[in-house]
């Protein structure tokens, strides 16, 4: 996947379960300008499927990348979403 982007904002939803990661992502995207990129940091493993599902169904957003990492022994899921239109 393309990694040519700069993160504008980071949204931390660690510890939150479904549907909070998706709902907060939508709210954070609403506050961005077109072409800006949101980084979503979650611990909900379901977000790996939910964020792409949301991005595909929602107009004006594009999922750029997803990453699975580990922080302090905890699985962390990162999502990079670009706002494509205002």
């Amino acid at each position: 996947m393309s990694t040519e982007y700069t993160v504008t904002e980071t949204l931390d939803v660690k510890g939150a379960g479904c549907p909070i990661p998706v709902v907060k992502t939508k709210q954070a995207i609403d506050d961005l300008a077109a072409e800006e990129v949101l980084e979503v940091v979650a611990t909900d493993s379901g977000s790996m499927s939910d964020i792409p599902g949301w991005a595909e169904t929602t107009a004006g957003v594009e999922l750029l990348d997803q990453e699975e990492t580990s922080e302090d022994g905890e699985d962390v899921y990162k999502h990079y979403v670009r706002k494509t239109e205002q």
């Binding site: 549907p19 709902v23 939508k26 939910d50 949301w54 169904t57 929602t58």
Partner: peptide, 11 residues
């Protein structure tokens, strides 16, 4: 409630 708030996030 979960479906409602998720659907709202879909617009």
């Amino acid at each position: 409630l979960i479906l409602a708030s998720t659907a709202a996030a879909f617009g």
